[in-house]
Design a protein around this nucleic acid. Structure first.
Lengths: 238, 238
DNA sequence: CGACGATCTGACCAAATGGTCAAGTTCTGT
DNA sequence: ACAGAACTTGACCATTTGGTCAGATCGTCG
């Protein structure tokens, strides 16, 4: 296990020829109303992979387990995704698509109170609906982002840079306390991902077999309240 | 680093016969002024293991790499720790000793503002000094705490239960806003561990090769300010 | 219907890895 | 100095695992 040693910089989708695979062949929309066999199998593999990678990490996951979960023979998995790393990259790319995102609610025209509350709610909703996506992402970063480094220091960095500007604007307008915008973003990330990534701990402390809707509602409210009280000025709260 | 020899509460150390190891033998304080060979080798292995487990996770870590990092032959590693799992448990026990802890600053008599600020500072200090400890812990929980489940739902749960009581007391005294104590603790954990666990991401966004003292100082200040403004009432802030 | 590419899959294989062992070497107490 | 325990280590080994392959089978289109 634990290959990957070789430096990996490519921004994840070093996925050449996503349409044409193994023995080469073109994507056909074909008869079947809802996509090709390839499509459906790839989706099944990606879903299975997301779960297994979330549970076991990259090295701990075995292609055999992923294949089993997708109910396909292992050789078939390798037909669609040449290597475990390629499959992992595909999962990661999917996950990013989800994550990129919600921060876009931060625009200068909006009220910070509103934008932030929405962001927290949206992130927690994802944490509830796609906890595995969150875990795969967390695991990747936790181990030094061997597959994602370049994404972090390009895409993500720029995006945060942008949003920091918006936050500075809000501060200048007297709507937010004079905090460091980037650190503020880190804090938003931290609290919103905690419930997905460390759910075992949360559940243990709360004494729940699984987190309920009420738990997530409570989490959302508590986080929103804490963060909003923490970062808004009196004039910003309205 | 004390080993787990001395009674350790966390269940983790399912380590029977801690004094006598492999071929059996008693611990001797002996001539050597500063501990036995065993002690020093165990420490070296534990340190090496902490690093490797943090970087690669449990499955990704190899006993060969750990041994190499400790500059001992692999067979020697297995002389001191029969299995990789046993070594891992020992590392985890060490880490817990660090973590358990800082929450004890929360006592009814103290001012919440003070206790919380201290807690944040202390946690961030650990995040800076022992990032690997934090990562090993995070990784363990991220993957469902296979080695720690019982610790979470016993020791940890009780501890949080206690501290929640303290927080409720503070709230009743009108010093803190009426928030959910447990969720508040989660939020404290989340923001303080973020800088250790996701340092790659933080560094990428901040554009740093490594986090400096100033970065940690900024993080500490920002977190403290956010949390304190977020949870204290006017009278709590005095 | 026949051709041809896409898909499927059991059987394999080489490398990696956790763990063992037996034959030393070093310590320690007496 | 000596016995016996503690420690060291190169050589091994069984298993696991990512990945390959060649020979089916299936689907589609002219």
């Amino acid at each position: 296990m634990s290959r990957q040693r070789t430096a990996r910089k490519p921004s994840i989708s070093s996925d050449k020829s996503s349409k044409t695979r193994r023995p080469g062949g073109l994507r056909k929309i074909s008869a079947n109303g809802r996509g090709t066999i390839r499509e459906s199998n790839e989706v099944r593999l990606l879903q299975a992979a997301e779960t297994v990678f979330a549970e076991r990490g990259f090295s701990g996951a075995t292609t055999a387990e992923i294949a089993a979960r997708a109910k396909l023979p292992k050789a078939n998995l390798h037909y669609y995704f040449r290597t475990k790393a390629e499959l992992y990259r595909a999962v990661l790319a999917n996950v990013l698509e989800l994550w990129l995102d919600e921060l876009d609610r931060f625009t200068p025209e909006r009220e910070p109170a509103e934008a932030i509350a929405e962001y927290v709610a949206a992130k927690l909703k994802w944490s509830r609906m796609r906890p595995n996506a969150s875990k795969v992402f967390a695991n990747e970063i936790l181990h030094g982002a061997p597959f994602m480094k370049s994404y972090l220091s390009n895409d993500l960095r720029r995006r945060v840079e942008d949003k920091a500007e918006v936050i500075r604007h809000w501060i200048a307008r007297g709507k937010m306390r004079p905090l460091d915008p980037k650190h503020f973003v880190f804090q938003l990330w931290a609290v919103t991902q905690h419930y997905a990534d460390f759910d075992v701990q949360v559940r243990a402390v709360l004494g729940r077999g699984r987190l309920t809707d009420r738990d997530f509602a409570a989490a959302t409210e508590n986080i929103s309240a804490l963060i909003l009280h923490g970062c808004l000025t009196p004039s910003g709260s309205r």
